[in-house]
Write a protein that binds this DNA or RNA. Structure first.
Lengths: 149, 149
DNA sequence: CCTTGCCTTGAAGTACACATGAAGGTTTAA
DNA sequence: TTAAACCTTCATGTGTACTTCAAGGCAAGG
């Protein structure tokens, strides 16, 4: 498939695919007789992988280091493992930060219902959730916003 | 406390704190007689909140929109709720991408053990995990890396 | 033959989120 | 009183990750 189809399939712009190839985030892409890129499913999977890691917050630079290790022929499994574990730690931390922020937003969202168009059913639900929150996290929760409830 | 102490307390640079104030991500900070910023715990909490949201991938622009709504006096709870829910969706998607990438790395990591210094105990553990993976996700898992096992 | 629509490379431009530097003010300590 | 160590504003610089532009090639349709 040509680069435009690949772009549509992955949601990554053609320019970005070329950029990823130049930066060696994806392997060298085969060319047709006239020099156009001919992209197969292996490349598509790589692009998707890069997209996932980028969305997860990994920089191009680190992603390249990571991929270089994997593509190398030498038996550098120890370094690979170390790099994997390092990256795993970074990502788990990020995930936890993200979850904390999600919890924060959910909390606020629930308290909106609390003083808006909430039904009694919802109110009872929220009292339960609030009790849960307080049980898990008894810390002072004033972040300086006018929480308006 | 002065800006340097606040910087050390939050891990955010002095320049970034000034930038956040200018961009209205944190409220106007009180000044001392000579015009220096005098930062209290309310501001510290706000800075921490901004840091969390930034780490969660929220842009300065969206964060400002978000905070503006919260700081406004008018009763715009509907818009607030909509914005919260929108942001929540973005963040949950991000969290899921992150979790997918973490799973991916864990899978690779497990397969390293599989052909390295793994004990028989670890091997049995991994067979179980692998079976789980296959059960949950029977899709073709070749991402184009030389998985080396 | 000419337009349309795809492609190529290489260079230059852009947006974001700060970082850094210049020029100057205040307070403390020797 | 002079230096150190903070601070201020305003302007400009920087790194990342692309995007956009310029100049041109190839193939098909009218």
């Amino acid at each position: 498939m040509n680069i435009k189809e690949a772009s549509e399939k992955t949601g990554v712009s053609s320019a970005a695919i070329r950029y990823y190839e130049k930066e060696s985030l994806i392997p060298p892409i085969d060319r047709t007789a006239v020099g156009n890129r001919d992209i197969d499913d292996r490349i598509i999977r790589r692009i998707t992988f890069v997209t996932q890691m980028r969305a997860a917050g990994m920089s191009i630079e680190n992603l390249r280091r990571y991929i270089e290790l994997f593509d190398a022929q030498e038996d550098n499994t120890k370094e690979q493992k170390a790099l994997l574990q390092e990256q795993l730690g970074v990502m788990e931390e990020k995930r936890d930060d993200l979850q904390a922020a999600i919890d924060h937003l959910n909390y606020k969202l629930n308290h909106f219902y609390d003083h808006m168009e909430s039904t009694e059913e919802e109110l009872r639900e929220l009292e339960r959730q609030h009790a849960d929150k307080v049980a898990q996290k008894p810390t002072e929760d004033d972040d300086g916003f006018n929480n308006a409830y």
